[in-house]
Design a protein around this nucleic acid. Structure first.
Lengths: 251, 251
DNA sequence: CACATTTCTTCAAAAAGTTTCATTTTTAGT
DNA sequence: ACTAAAAATGAAACTTTTTGAAGAAATGTG
């Protein structure tokens, strides 16, 4: 059996079962624990699943509720640190803040609750709910909802965003290339992200260091158009970024 | 059983029961008290629940969290019965179903998951989320979100609704007057409800019997324009309704 | 205060994870 | 097609984490 084939089987199984143990995967793929563990380590690094003691856990939000999803996410602590830094440095009282759908940007919400008179505009269903629960005035973008990321996308969403102006936008990214391209897998989401940035006076891309050097199908912006917020970077990570990048390292 | 699995079970159980004892959780997960205690300590540290002498307590803010609130709602069982009746009698495979924001109509979602190829369009944030979690294709209406009911309202929402046609709409009501007026307290929500009904080929108002004879500020439709779905009524309740009403009593 | 629970502490057994290494399988170059 | 280098695999020894039990300490109740 090919490595890719096996990992694909593992991915499906984990996503279908939410959690599973190593032994199950051994039976499933007829390989040793060693191999499965090596696969899991590699797959965790790629963000396909999360390793837990005894097995692996899905990072996709199918049957779980929101709060669980957010907690079980990869690099959760880093995301919170980014969010806190971004919220306290780049948001003013009275701002109209656009928050992109996604787990990193989601973490911004609690920190915005302390800033007077902010309004949140978002295309993330969970983000909207969280914002409401924090008593923040909330505007939701309408349209089709993607079943995996729960992001609102499509033409309706796009034209609604284009009819508004934001003080500041916070956008998530799946990859930052050496040449400065910011990327995400889904072209539909990319179109939305591009509009979010265009309609904002100031635009910030929140991306933890694992996204550096990653490359996805759809380009939605270039580093010269935005400010990139990340965690502390090693020198080799910095070398993998464009020289003229407008970068802020949290803390 | 894996730690994550167990803690997930504990979280659900505690949230559903508000408080519970350690021994209950032992039975539930078939583990020792030691393990449960260790889980509770860890979960308390993560803010998932609160430990109290003898067990654990939910920390969810019920007044704000609608989706949790739903099950503690007044007449919860009646609402489920209405929803099941409505879903199984008035929805066809392939329908585009509009579901109004609100706790009664929210209950429709699980029953629609079994009907092939339905699409849900809604202005309820929790309803959308629930729909997604059931794997149903979902379209969300955009606009301002009301902080108490979490219903999407306003001009943007209105024009988005008017740009669509639904096979069937399910709308909630706060009051049904003797003269056939269907009412709700907020005029903004009333405007939305009126549009939801207008754009649908078939429109159903879901209202349990406690709404009969109630009168609210804003009228959004008349009984002659819709089919009203309620639970079993007494003869005096029937007498408080217009004579020409198109009424369906669940079960 | 006395009593019954509940919680905390400690410890050893069991389960899971890591590291290392010899062996097999792939890959790439000639 | 052949061979050497690289990568992947499975097994073993060893480390860490998790678990349940038993006794000590703390807590709530009448």
């Amino acid at each position: 059996m090919l490595t890719q084939e096996r990992q694909s089987i593992i991915e499906n199984y984990v996503n279908q079962h939410e959690v599973c143990r190593v032994s199950e995967l051994c039976d499933l793929t007829e390989t040793s624990e060693s191999t499965i563990r090596r696969d899991l380590i590699q797959m965790e690094k790629n963000g396909i699943l999360k390793r837990v003691h005894g097995g692996a856990q899905s990072v996709k939000n199918f049957s779980r509720d929101v709060s669980q999803n957010v907690r079980f996410n990869l690099n959760h602590d880093v995301k919170i640190a980014l969010a806190q830094y971004a919220a306290s440095n780049f948001v003013q009282p009275g701002d109209n803040v656009f928050i992109d759908a996604g787990t990193t940007t989601y973490e911004l919400v609690p920190f915005l609750a302390d800033i007077p008179n902010v309004k949140i505009i978002t295309n993330g269903v969970e983000t909207a709910l969280c914002s409401l629960n924090h008593g923040i005035k909330t505007i939701l973008i309408g349209g089709e909802v993607k079943d995996d990321t729960h992001a609102v996308i499509g033409q309706t969403a796009l034209s609604q965003i284009k009819a508004m102006n934001f003080s500041v936008s916070f956008v998530g990214a799946n990859g930052i290339e050496q040449n400065g391209n910011l990327t995400t897998p889904d072209p539909e989401e990319a179109a939305i992200k591009a509009a979010e940035i265009k309609q904002a006076r100031r635009a910030y891309v929140l991306a933890d260091s694992s996204k550096i050097g990653e490359r996805n199908f759809a380009v939605f912006a270039h580093t010269r158009d935005v400010c990139v917020v990340t965690d502390q970077l090693t020198s080799s990570q910095k070398a993998a970024l464009p020289a003229d990048i407008n970068l802020k390292e949290a803390k």
